[in-house]
Design a protein around this nucleic acid. Structure first.
Lengths: 194, 194
DNA sequence: GTCTATATAGAGATAGAC
DNA sequence: GTCTATCTCTATATAGAC
């Protein structure tokens, strides 16, 4: 209650991240100035440094948070019994999760170049951890004879690339509903590996 | 023969584009200065403006040239008779073409945001023209009963997204040869649409 | 065609008042 | 916690000498 006038720490912090997310996605990290972010938040540029030590940390926190969310959400999903069901779960989860946060997805892919080497290594490690979950499913399915995949590593990357593509065109309220999109993509993934 | 000392128009022009291509791909358009490009070329920054009216034109020319090359190379490919053969031709052509010029491919995808609206519209038109070639193949195959595709537009984008993914990991001299990579991806595309 | 020099603008980040 | 003011650096682009 008894707050200093003009003190909005708990409000401003999230607003800074939201503004940065939106602006980085629209124009790219390097093209967005701290002044422009401050403008969107409604503060002066200097005030941003109460919430981030520098611009790089702002980008890294967004990407790190996105990858953490991804791995955590995946871990909370129910586990199916067969490789085929696991693959369907993964495909539908991936589409759903990524369509729910297009800006964070976009940044996490496009701005890898603008991370410092240390930050890049951290994000890449998280990404590889996620991809390895799919590869494990493919290997299990191949070893038990239900999948026909030439190379599990390449098939992993091919499936993820295909599923990621949905973010380039899907708009909610468009021609197709989310369940329809999930079904179409799952159909293609299913056929591609059997 | 009788040239002015220090005059290298026919040499410097291509070198400017090469340096810009490499630097834009590595660091991103917005993060690369004209001074940095000039440094790579071995001239002063002012000299670059003999070869491009501004930085934006430099980016646009690279992307425009890439899309022109793509459509021209595609037009020169032999035309197969059946939709299935056409799809195989397209898939293999796409992989081969894109793996031959990874930097231009990377820029043409990543730097769309940094084009002016007019330049963006031009590039997008060329991209759609290329994608429509694949969609035509898919529609022909579906209409003649050889392909089983739920939605030709989405399948077009899904296939292209999957094929584009090869550029994120392939390195010549690696574990797999180009023909092997083509065969693996064609196998997945083939199964996904039949 | 390239150079040096510069006009003009905007960047990231910090200091100190309130 | 936010403001104003500012330090320092770098950006794109142009002008004019050679």
């Amino acid at each position: 209650m008894a707050r200093t006038a003009g003190s909005h720490s708990d409000i401003t912090g999230p607003r800074v991240r939201e503004a940065a997310l939106s602006l980085f996605a629209q124009h790219g990290y390097a093209a967005v100035s701290m002044r422009r972010i401050a403008q969107d938040v409604g503060v002066q540029a200097g005030a941003l440094y109460n919430y981030t030590p520098d611009k790089q940390s702002l980008l890294f926190d967004l990407m790190r948070g996105h990858m953490d969310d991804l791995l955590q959400a995946r871990a909370l999903e129910p586990q199916s019994a067969t490789p085929l069901d696991c693959l369907e779960d993964f495909s539908r989860f991936h589409i759903r999760f990524h369509l729910e946060r297009p800006l964070a997805v976009f940044i996490s892919y496009m701005e890898l170049r603008n991370l410092t080497p240390e930050n890049f290594a951290t994000i890449e490690d998280l990404r590889r951890r996620y991809e390895s979950e799919l590869e494990t499913i493919l290997r299990d399915g191949r070893d038990t004879g239900v999948f026909d995949v030439a190379d599990t590593k390449i098939t992993t990357l091919a499936i993820i690339a295909m599923l990621n593509g949905v973010n380039t065109w899907y708009r909610s309220g468009g021609r197709l509903s989310l369940p329809e999109v999930e079904a179409i993509y799952w159909g293609m993934v299913h056929k591609a590996v059997t």
